[in-house]
Amino acid sequence: MNNFKQISIYIILIGASIISVFPFFFMIVSSTNKSVDVSGGKLIPGTNLLTNIQNLLSTVDIGQALLNSAIIAITTTVLALLVASLAGYGFEIYRSRAKDIVFNILLLSMMIPFAALMVPLFRMFGTISEIAPIIGIDTLASVVIPTITTAFLIFFFRQNTKMFPKELLEAGRIDGVSELGLFFRIYIPTMKTTYAAAAIITFMSSWNNYLWPLVVLQTPKNQTIPLLISSLGSSYSPDYGVIMLAIVIATLPTALIFFFLQKYFVAGMMGSIK
């Protein structure tokens, strides 16, 4: 009986794994096949990988797009982590009467879909372009700036700060550490797992961000990876092998970062539930 239960659990788990891994499998296999074979649903690796690589490199500048995406994602992650953790820390550690009201208003901003903010935001950047073109429309900075603070990340840091042992701060104060010092020398090192989880979330959403970069970036030189992939599929007769190859390349960085930080990620997420 026990055995039967075990076996059925494993069958379900194996089934679920196959279902979740299949898209990756298909993506990788398809990147080695001709477009016609991809549409035909061929599931065996082909011999077209080199041709696909050649076609990809000759049609688009994927190196530039990777670089753009990397600059945007890394800058966003560093800045967002710093700003959001300072805010989350402040909300939890310091006392103020208005604190909860401000925090609730902040949370409400999570309810506004980005599509509703897009036109006013674009208008703002249009004005900024006239004053300071280096952070205006069609610059990488214009992609970074609106995504630095997100209500979600502040909320995430505040929730995790709840289980931060505040006695550490008091001990620090007694030893004469400044308020900023408390944050940088005590809080950050203690909250490493939270930072790792937040870094993964921010990096991934920035790496995959589509709508805002699409609207605000104009020149091919500034194109990010998702925009590049979208334009590869725009043709009336798209080359699916090449598209799949581009998707493999686009997926690698996030996959690597996830594997690298996975341990911390799970710990960080668990923390936010506790």
Binding site: I134, I135, I137, D138, L140, V144, F184, Q218, K221, N222
Partner: peptide, 26 residues
């Protein structure tokens, strides 16, 4: 930390900047 942020920010801005110089962005 401050210098790291500045460097990253300048890097982010600069590629836009060079575009302006080329005049293709607009």
């Amino acid at each position: 930390l401050a210098s790291l942020i500045t460097i990253l920010f300048i890097a982010a801005c600069s590629s836009g900047d060079s575009d302006e110089a080329n005049g293709t962005s607009n």
